[in-house]
Design a protein around this nucleic acid. Structure first.
Lengths: 191, 191
DNA sequence: GTCTATAATACGATAGAC
DNA sequence: GTCTATCGTATTATAGAC
């Protein structure tokens, strides 16, 4: 059974998650989180006594979502190549949001990297999860060193595409780069 | 002859430029710009009556710097391939700053893309300049459509490398990706 | 052109009633 | 667990003295 307090907490975390993504962390205030979650500002502050607390909770929530997603992918995809393709599909499917708000992991980590290095270290775990998962898939095909490099390359392509499509507010940029990522995957995986 | 007011203006713009880069635009206050430029806060506000005004001035200043840099490169480099290599060298030479603060163009445009779309359009011009310049160099070797794609690809690689190196605060990531960019340039330019 | 003083508002945070 | 009231401090911005 989930308590009322836990439910409220989750409501707040979801609202903050969206706002941190769509507006940015620094610019988002308790006031706005309160409006978005239909709660009183003081109530938010009761559950998260500092803004950093709220940020930490949002990051942990994202990490859990990523963990669940990667487990699902690991379960669903039969071959390493299909797994890697799944990563590209995710980017493709989120083209509209990526063009409008940028990458949720990249933009948050970039922002925190300038003014909140401690929190950035927490946000970095989102990348760690993806990179380790990608690396494991590449390892099924390539030697360790190469697998690590390829994982980083694929993530860099995704981030580069996200930044450009966000700057030009153009989902097509994501789709073009997704095609190139698929082509690149085919080439190196010799399929 | 440059007036005292113009000199003060330039001092402020330089201070704001650095702070917007190192801390981010939203988080930087008049107070901090005042401290960094050894001026009074009200004096800053006299020259730039709104924060958006100051941002616009900083962006225009950056655009002028980029314009000058690209002209210099166009003048110095003998072949299109050397020009393109110069772009990679810039990234390599700025590895430390890129790892510490991210890409000045990318992080600012990302930030503005979430909460200040009008200013983002101004910031986008920085990318326009680079992309058009790169495209022109590729056009000396490839057909127009291909040249445009390659320019966007090279910029995406640079942005992807910047994001990753910023997230891990690791200049080596920039250097590794710079090597890959050079390799890629050599391959497609058949050198 | 420069700066002081101050307005008006928003912020994060706290103490305490219910 | 919820919410009110409020504190102290930031913020941007203005009006006006020099």
């Amino acid at each position: 059974m989930i308590s009322k307090g836990q439910k409220t907490r989750n409501t707040i975390i979801n609202a903050a998650d969206n706002l941190f993504y769509q507006l940015g962390y620094d610019i988002t205030s308790y006031q706005e989180v309160a409006q978005a979650s239909h709660l009183k500002k003081a109530n938010i502050q009761y559950h998260f006594s500092s803004k950093t607390d709220l940020l930490t909770a949002v990051i942990e929530h994202r990490i859990e979502q990523i963990r669940a997603l990667l487990e699902k992918w690991s379960f669903e995809c039969d071959t390493p190549y299909n797994c890697l393709n799944q990563f590209v599909s995710m980017i493709e499917n989120n083209a509209d949001d990526l063009a409008r708000y940028g990458c949720p992991m990249g933009t948050l980590s970039d922002e925190l990297g300038k003014s909140a290095l401690e929190s950035q270290a927490e946000a970095r775990q989102m990348f760690d999860l993806f990179l380790r998962w990608l690396e494991a898939r590449f390892r099924a095909i390539f030697p360790p060193k190469q697998a690590k490099d390829y994982a980083q390359q694929l993530m860099a392509m995704a981030q580069g595409a996200s930044v450009l499509s966000h700057i030009y507010n153009d989902p097509e940029i994501i789709k073009n780069h997704a095609k190139m990522m698929r082509k690149w995957l085919k080439t190196i995986c010799k399929i």
